[in-house]
Amino acid sequence: MLKGNILTPDGWRHGELQCRDGRITALPDTPVDPADNDAPRILPGFIDLHVHGGGGADVMEGGEALATVARTHARFGTTSLLATTMTAPDAEIRRVLGEIGAYLEAPGALASRVLGGHLEGPYINPGKLGAQPSHARSGVIEEVEALSRLAPIRLLTLAPELAGHHALIRWLSERGVRVQLGHTLGSYEDGVAALDHGACGFTHLFNAMTGLHHRKPGMVGAALAHAEYAELIPDLLHVHPGAIRTALRCIPRLYAVTDSTAAAGMPDGEYRLGEQAVTKCLGGVRLADGTLAGSTLTMDQALRNLVSLGLTLAEASDRLSRFPADFLGRQDLGRLAPGAHADLVVLDPHLNLRAVHVAGRRIEGVPHVTDA
């Protein structure tokens, strides 16, 4: 039982939230404006669909690293995540997906739910790698089908302009795998065609894709003109606040991700991102040549950043919880409603974390002020 200002699908309510066996059983009926009191703000737990690492561990390490990543992000309010792979040789991707599949059979306790995998590459454009290693290639259905037997792939990022990818997008979409466009040199027309074939989102919008020009609107233009969903990294480093505001006006269900690396939740220093060495300093993570390489962002800081841009707390919450849950088709996540999983975060009036619960169980080690 928790008491405070509770964000429900019908707005803010004041009173007690009750749960049993990991599910919400009852919510209060009394409407409230949370600005009128100092009671805790209780929100749905955050859902991060793009996580490479955290707590010094990298998803590509597999094994115990997966548990470390899930425990680390739970401490910052992420109650569900997708373990996100890097572009790598086929054997390496198979190994990691196999370890993700094994982890899902015996997940760690008191940690974020790992909902499956996000395959970011290798089916991306070698001319738009960003911080991805140089193992990019076109995808074929038979290969992706074999990979999907190792672990549930919930989301796959690809460059739509590569040969054979329209057929791959259709095949994935028919099987319920969400396809996002990213790490692409594709044109506006390539983006629109991919959406017509079943793609449904864009990976770290603005980053690693062709930009908007008034005579060549590029992949960014396709997203702004046509997307219902897209992910964006709101660390205020990857994307200028003005560009974030533009996307918020154009894309109805724009949602936040961290694209976090092993450096998230850790001090400045050297870390791994797949096979590459990265450095955390000045609030960011970069390759040796200065290229941004994922982030140090945690979702509680993402929430505060969106509020700082003018979103209400309820609007920001939707972009960290409800919209990513809806994108995956998970009506039992991302909202505080009877029957939903009792995954939630408790904030003070200054939006600092005070508690995190997964399936109704409180996570240990939640920091009062994030060092993100």
Rank of each mutant, 00 (worst) to 15 (best):
V220A: 11
V220K: 02
G221V: 06
A222E: 08
A222M: 10
A222D: 04
A222G: 09
A223Y: 01
A223C: 09
A223D: 03
A223W: 06
A223S: 04
A223Q: 06
L224F: 08
L224R: 01
A225Y: 04
A225N: 11
A225S: 13
H226M: 05
H226W: 14
H226S: 14
A227P: 03
A227D: 05
A227V: 10
E228M: 07
E228V: 12
E228A: 12
E228K: 07
Y229T: 00
Y229Q: 01
Y229D: 05
Y229F: 15
Y229V: 00
A230D: 10
A230R: 08
E231R: 03
L232D: 02
L232K: 06
L232P: 00
L232I: 15
I233N: 07
I233C: 11
P234W: 11
P234N: 05
D235W: 08
D235G: 08
D235A: 09
D235K: 07
D235Y: 07
D235E: 12
L236M: 13
L236D: 09
L236P: 02
L236N: 03
L237Y: 15
L237V: 12
L237K: 14
H238L: 04
H238M: 11
H238F: 12
V239A: 12
V239E: 12
H240V: 00
H240E: 13
P241I: 03
G242Q: 13
G242T: 06
G242A: 15
G242F: 07
G242D: 14
A243I: 01
A243N: 13
A243Y: 08
A243G: 10
I244V: 14
I244D: 10
I244P: 03
R245V: 05
R245F: 08
T246H: 09
T246D: 06
T246W: 15
A247M: 06
A247D: 08
A247F: 10
A247N: 09
L248W: 12
L248K: 06
R249S: 15
C250M: 13
C250P: 00
C250Q: 14
